[in-house]
C-alpha cells in the first residue's frame, strides 16, 4: 500500500524532473526533424520555403549523377579519414591511459579541441596556402621557387578533417582503455602471445565499445562536414554538407536540402543503433544474465 503510493509519487517526481528537458528537446529538436521529413515531400517555393503540394521531386533530384558523385566522395572521404583517425588515436589513447600524467595529456588534447574550430581551420589555411607558412619557409630555404599547391584539394580536406576530429576519437578511446585491466596483456604474453598478438587478441576485443564510439563520433560529423571542405577544399572536394547548405542559401531548394538531411539522419541513426546494440550486447556478454537488463546503452 505504502510502497505503491511511493512508487506513484516517484513516477510523478521523475516526470516532473525530466519533463522540462524532454519537452525542450521534443519541441526544438524532434519537431524540426519532423518538419524536415515533411518538407522533403513538398514542392520548392520560389524564394525558399515550400509550397504545400505533395511531390517526390526532391528525391528524384537527389539521384542526379552529380549529387551521387558527391555522395560517394563524401562516403569515401569520411571512411578514409575515420580509419586514419582511429589508427592514430588508438596508440594515443593507450599511452595516455597508461601514463602517470593522465590529466596533463588530457589537457593537451582538450586545449586544441576547445580552441575555436574556425581559428584552427584558419591556422591550416595560414600554413598551407600559396603564401602560407610552409610555402614561404620552403621558398626562404631555396627548396622551391614556385608555391606548391598544398591547399584547396582533397588532401588538405582530409588532413584538416583528421586534425579536427582526432580528439573525438582519442577521448572515448582513452576512457575505455583506462578501464581496461592491463594485467590481461601480461597474461596473454605469459601464455605465449607475442606483443602484437596480445594487442589484437586481448586489448582490441576488450575495448570494442570504445572503438565503436570513436568511429561513430568521427565518422558521422565528418560525413556531415561543411566548414572544412568549404574553407580548405577545392571544387573537387565538395561534400554533402556543402550541397545541403547551398540548397538552403543559394538555390533555395528547401525540399532537396531536407531530403539530403533526412538521408544523413537515417545513416547516422543506423550507426547509432549499431553502436548501442553492440555495446549492449557486449555488456550482456560480460555480465551474468540476471544483471543484463539495462536498456540504457548509453555511451559513457
Amino acid at each position: 500500500m505504502n510502497s505503491h503510493m511511493q512508487e506513484k509519487r516517484g513516477r510523478r517526481l521523475g516526470i516532473t524532473y525530466s519533463a522540462p528537458m524532454g519537452l525542450w528537446l521534443t519541441f526544438f529538436f524532434l519537431v524540426p526533424l519532423c518538419i524536415i521529413i515533411l518538407y522533403s515531400f513538398l514542392k520548392k517555393g520560389l524564394y525558399g520555403g515550400v509550397e504545400w503540394e505533395f511531390t517526390l521531386t526532391a528525391y528524384r533530384q537527389m539521384l542526379n549523377p552529380n549529387f551521387m558523385r558527391v555522395f560517394l566522395r563524401t562516403l569515401w572521404v569520411a571512411a578514409l579519414s575515420t580509419v586514419i583517425t582511429i589508427t592514430l588515436a588508438l596508440p594515443c589513447g593507450y599511452a595516455m591511459a597508461r601514463s602517470r600524467h593522465q590529466v596533463m595529456w588530457l589537457a593537451l588534447v582538450i586545449i586544441p579541441f576547445w580552441t575555436n574550430s574556425l581559428i584552427r581551420i584558419y591556422a591550416w589555411i595560414a600554413i598551407l596556402s600559396s603564401e602560407g607558412f610552409v610555402n614561404e619557409a620552403l621558398k626562404a630555404l631555396g627548396v622551391i621557387g614556385e608555391s606548391l599547391p598544398l591547399i584547396y584539394n582533397q588532401g588538405a580536406v582530409i588532413t584538416v578533417l583528421i586534425y579536427m576530429y582526432i580528439p573525438f576519437a582519442i577521448l572515448p578511446l582513452f576512457t575505455t582503455i583506462d578501464k581496461f585491466d592491463f594485467q590481461l596483456l601480461e597474461a596473454a604474453r605469459d601464455l605465449g602471445a607475442s606483443k602484437p598478438e596480445s594487442i589484437f587478441k586481448v586489448l582490441i576485443p576488450n575495448i570494442r565499445s570504445g572503438i565503436i564510439t570513436a568511429v561513430i563520433f568521427t565518422f558521422i560529423p565528418i560525413f556531415g562536414a561543411y566548414t572544412v571542405p568549404l574553407l580548405v577544399g577545392g571544387k573537387d572536394s565538395y561534400m554533402i554538407g556543402n550541397i545541403i547548405v547551398d540548397q538552403v542559401t543559394k538555390t533555395r531548394n528547401w525540399p532537396l536540402a531536407s531530403a539530403f538531411s533526412l538521408v544523413i539522419t537515417v545513416v547516422s541513426t543506423i550507426g547509432v543503433i549499431w553502436m548501442m546494440t553492440s555495446t549492449a550486447s557486449e555488456r550482456a556478454r560480460l555480465k551474468a544474465p540476471a544483471q543484463v537488463v539495462d536498456a540504457n546503452g548509453g555511451i559513457s
Partner: peptide, 10 residues
C-alpha cells in the same frame, strides 16, 4: 551524433 549541419538546417 547528428551532424551539425542537419541540426542547423532543421
Amino acid at each position: 551524433v547528428l551532424p551539425e549541419v542537419i541540426i542547423g538546417i532543421s
